[in-house]
Amino acid sequence: MKVMVCLKQVPHQDAKLDINSDGTWIQEDNIKFEINSYDTYALEEALRIKDADADTEVVVVSIGPDRVTQALRTALGMGADRAVHVNDAEAFGSDALCVAKVLAAVAKAESPDLIFTGLMTDDGNSSAVPPMLAELIDVPSATGVLHTEAANGSLKVERELEGGAIEVVELPKPCLASIQTGANQVRYASLKGIMQAKKKPIDVKTAADLGVSDVASKATIDKVYSPPKNATADILSGSTDEIVSGLMGKIKELGVL
């Protein structure tokens, strides 16, 4: 079985983010990057299939500049077998559909039995790529997956629904699942794994190599800014009784209770 895992490298969760000089994105120089947290759960889910079946091949795929190699090396250090790095400036930071088109081209070339992605990305938060990718390669998909169980011809998944309900779906292979955070306990890469990862192949491709064109973003970001601080906040002061009384008054005034 072959499992393709789509990874995005995003700014590290502890990185201090500043807006760039033209106000259209964050300043990416001198900040750390890491694998999108949702994608680490997708990778772990794939590696568990590999743990159970040594013949399974896990292929990680990412789009981005040279720095993405580090994310792929980490994934290889965790146990993935090989990587595909789409290093094409036109596709960097592209919109969801163009990203899905590039990933679809990789999927067509790889013909995986399963495709795992994170539910969304920490930076984009759109959740749009996984269903678009499934649609472009014409495979069934499930989003918000908390548990997977791979059988011979299908993948049984548990999806998270509103209100804490769980939906159980069985998808015929090939299929795609976008994995929710908390679906599993993500393993750490070992130092040995990182060293062994140096010997694992990273296949670098451009969009043209994959037979895809016109992958530049069709969406433009006009402005990125920090939300203005709300000057209307009331800070209650006085004794505890006065503060509680004031708070109750505000709640009633707003009609919350």
Binding site: K32, Q70, R73, T74, G77, L191, I194, M195
Partner: peptide, 10 residues
């Protein structure tokens, strides 16, 4: 890069 990646891993 390898040494820095090992450091980040730890």
């Amino acid at each position: 890069e390898d040494q820095l990646l090992l450091q980040q891993t730890v």
